[in-house]
């Protein structure tokens, strides 16, 4: 039932070195290298802050946290989810030449992309962490929870990626569909607006597992709330991840013979 994940665990060293090579590849030929991995998200955070806070005058503090910092932390979590989601769904299609020509355990490819996104994420996280720690004194034991939420995010992405990658490999249309979904998710996940604004309907937003991660990040920085303090939501999240894992394994097995021929 978990064959592809066992394979990933068995090949974790291979995943590790492939993701390092992926970073090399990503920044090959640039002089500044991974600095670009930092500049782009920081710029986007700044733009969103400007638009919402200065332009739309909607940037009041959220439950006591300054809007800019609140937005930045949410965005950091979101960038991981966004990149992981985007890259894993294409992980078979973008590595077509390897799949077609090299005998290779292709089930690990989504994991490679997730690890790659995670490395980029770590750099951004370190920078933002430092900035908020210095300017807002956000350092607390609750920061350690980030490890848990990172783990949760990686597991969620692994489940989603294992499901979407084989489907996208079979059908390009599905890839387009997912790109559209991602845009939808971006606006529907409370990243620059607070879920509290919805009042009694916030449970709809909470169904979105991405919200669990984004909210968890903010809890770890500003609200000193542990994940164990919302056991139902945590339970829901992990059940969902388990379902994604099972579906991912099934879809991979089912689609592999098809996309090996048609890719």
């Amino acid at each position: 039932m978990f064959d592809i994940y066992k394979e990933m665990w068995k090949r974790r060293k291979m995943i590790q070195s492939l993701s390092i090579q992926e970073i090399k590849r990503e920044y090959a030929g640039t002089l500044l290298g991974f600095v670009w991995g930092l500049v782009n998200p920081l710029m986007r955070i700044a733009v969103f802050w400007f638009v919402f806070s200065v332009g739309a005058r909607a940037g009041g503090p959220v439950d006591g946290a300054p809007y800019f910092a609140w937005l930045a932390i949410g965005m950091v979590a979101w960038f991981l989810l966004n990149d992981g989601f985007r890259l894993t769904q294409k992980s078979f299609r973008s590595k077509r030449s390897i799949i077609k020509n090299t005998p290779f355990p292709i089930a690990i490819l989504p994991a490679v992309q997730i690890l790659f996104s995670y490395y980029i994420h770590l750099i951004l996280l370190a920078v933002v962490f430092l900035l908020t720690a210095l300017s807002l004194q956000t350092v607390s034991l609750y920061n350690l929870q980030l490890l848990y939420y990172d783990f949760a995010a990686v597991m969620l992405l692994l489940g989603i990626g294992s499901m979407t990658a084989p489907l996208v490999a079979v059908s390009k249309d599905f890839g387009r569909f997912l790109d559209t979904i991602l845009v939808f998710l971006f606006w529907m996940t409370p990243i620059f607006w607070s879920a509290d604004n919805l009042g009694m309907y916030d449970w709809i937003i909470k169904l979105n597992p991405f919200h669990y991660i984004v909210q968890g990040y903010r809890d770890s920085f500003f609200y000193e709330t542990g994940f164990w303090e919302q056991p139902v939501y945590t339970f829901y999240f992990w059940i969902l991840v388990l379902i994604f894992f099972l579906l991912g394994n099934y879809l991979h097995k089912r689609m592999k013979p098809i996309f090996l021929d048609t890719l």
């Binding site: 090399k24 590849r25 090959a28 030449s97 090299t102």
Partner: peptide, 12 residues
């Protein structure tokens, strides 16, 4: 499997 192009990434 030796075929000329397999597994060679042109950016690296």
């Amino acid at each position: 499997f030796l075929d000329v192009s397999s597994g060679i990434d042109s950016e690296l």
